[in-house]
Design a protein around this nucleic acid. Structure first.
Length: 464
RNA sequence: UCCGGAGUAGCUCAGCUGGUUAGAGCAACUGACUGUUAAUCAGUGGGUCGGGGGUUCGAGUCCCUCCUCCGGAGCCA
């Protein structure tokens, strides 16, 4: 008797045929006959597919087993045999079924089509459904694939802080971290809240990006990346934004924007290839039921060069498009969602790097180009999702960086440690931020970011 | 935050210009049947009509208000 997973059996059915195994899992469906036999589809989470269990009235608990409800948990022992039925190559002929936990018949997850909106309200139960089981197995796998990609290339994984004392990251509204009594906080003489009495002796927040911190490690290890949760207290209500999300932020020293985009392209292609190779059942499911044409699209992206255009070229293409946009494309104004959608969904139909944006609406740390008007920034737009990566070459020239900080009305004192990196052995540096959930959306075809993170946090919503 | 839409059975929805006891399909349950596989067939139970307030003889239906969800926009990843 060996303990087996359903994945092991499906991956190598001939090796298991004839073997006696023990499986542990949950019932997806059960069909019984009064003739004295029945079928259970068992899932143990190891694999997308269920294994069919055949049982008959030689089991002492046959009647009890036949009345089991969906989601009830079992330990099943029996022999793996070739299946006479059409739906599967092998099945398990049960010699014993131990009922571990019986699920109540009021289980909200039912054997019927259920909307993603409804299942979102049952976030604790939805991983038991086909779609979410596939999404979150893929999510786990992609996290691993990303680590593997960077580790193979000698990148050092840096754990940048979740709680940050830096209010200078500039990437969005922050969540305050405090242990002060919200009803009666200590106050200074002029009546303001006295943060010096707070836990850390200063105002602290949840990080919106590990970039500034990871750059300091880049200046020691050459190639680094972060991969962790980030938090934005923006009142964003869209299918592409959550308040808590995971971000991958690589940073390369002695690197420019070109190398940065090449790194992003190689990483995406590698992850796509890995997912297609190693999760074929999940990808087939997404392709059939979630997003028709997904596989073909990903295969094309895996095998083709990403497009590269400058912001200035993008504006020209939009102006020449003959399309009537709600917002007229104009140099000096940021690209609107409708503009990005046109470029990526209609014109190119493949991932596009847009580079060299006007400095006025980009962050202070992005490297000023020789034209003095644009910065060495890039966004990667992908079909169906839009912006998935934002990156830039960093301003390594101390005097230019200080001038940019002043220009944007920021306080240079907040950046003393960031500026130190430029003072002591500055090098050209570049990096990008990849939204992990957006990557999962792109790989699965799922349309709402709330359905690719286990317990989504959005404005007015933090159940579970 | 702005614009638009929606909250009626466990789920997805119907319910007309306000009018008896609020409907269907699916799911669940009970039974029949079947090497079944989104099984099939028959039967049964299941509702504070999102919350609060108002108009009316009478409100699921009309008005006000709040809440939540969905789609789009902005912010971004």
């Amino acid at each position: 008797m060996q303990l087996a997973t359903i994945k092991q059996i499906f991956r190598d059915p001939s090796a298991f045929t004839g073997a006696t195994v023990e499986l542990r899992g949950w019932i997806r469906t059960v069909r019984t006959s009064s003739k004295g036999f029945g079928f259970i589809e068992l899932n143990d989470g190891s694999f997308f597919k269920n294994l069919q269990i055949v049982f008959d009235n030689e089991l002492p608990n046959f009647d009890e087993v036949g009345k089991l409800t969906i989601a009830s948990s079992l330990v099943v022992r029996g022999q793996v045999v070739e299946s006479p039925g059409a739906g599967q190559a092998v099945e398990l002929k049960a010699s014993a079924i131990e009922i571990v936990g019986v699920a109540g018949s009021d289980n909200p997850v039912q054997k019927k089509r259920q909307t993603f909106e409804f299942l979102r309200t049952k976030a604790h139960l939805r991983p038991r459904t086909n779609t979410f089981s596939a999404v979150f197995r893929l999510r786990s796998y992609v996290a691993f694939a990303i680590h593997r990609f960077f580790q193979e290339q000698g990148f050092i994984y840096v754990h940048t802080p979740i709680i940050t004392g830096s209010d200078a990251e500039g990437a969005g509204e922050m969540f305050r971290v405090s242990t002060l009594d919200p009803v009666n906080p200590p106050r200074t003489e002029d009546g303001a809240v006295d943060w010096s009495q707070d836990f850390f002796g200063r105002e602290t927040s949840l990080t919106v990006s590990g970039q500034l911190e990871v750059e300091t490690y880049c200046a020691a290890y050459s190639k680094v990346y972060t991969f962790g949760p980030t938090f934005r207290a923006e009142n964003s209500n869209t299918a592409r934004h959550v308040s808590e999300f995971w971000m991958i932020e690589p940073e390369i020293a002695f690197g420019d924007l070109k190398q940065d985009s090449e790194l992003a392209e190689a990483m995406l292609k590698r992850v796509i290839a890995d997912v297609l190779n190693e999760l074929p059942e999940e990808m087939e499911f997404f392709n059939r039921f979630i997003d028709e044409g997904l596989k073909e699209r990903l295969e094309l992206v895996r095998d083709s060069e990403f497009k590269r255009i400058t912001y200035t070229e993008a504006i020209e293409l939009l102006q020449q498009s003959g399309k009537s946009f709600e917002f007229k494309p104009e140099w000096g104004k940021d690209l609107q969602t409708e503009h990005e959608r046109y470029l990526v969904d209609e014109l190119f139909k493949t991932p596009v790097f847009v580079t060299d944006y006007p400095k006025d609406f980009k962050a202070f740390y992005m490297r000023l180009n020789d034209d003095q008007k644009t910065v060495a920034a890039m966004d990667l737009l992908v079909p169906g999702v839009g912006e998935i990566i934002g990156g830039s070459q960093r301003e390594e020239r101390l005097d230019v960086l200080e001038r940019r900080i002043a220009e944007m009305g920021l306080n240079p004192d907040d950046y003393w440690w960031y500026l130190d990196v430029r003072r002591y052995g500055a090098v050209p540096m570049a990096g990008f931020g990849l939204g992990f959930e957006r990557l999962i959306m792109y790989l699965t075809g799922m349309k709402n970011i709330r359905d690719v993170i286990p317990f989504p946090r959005t404005p007015k919503s933090a159940e579970f």
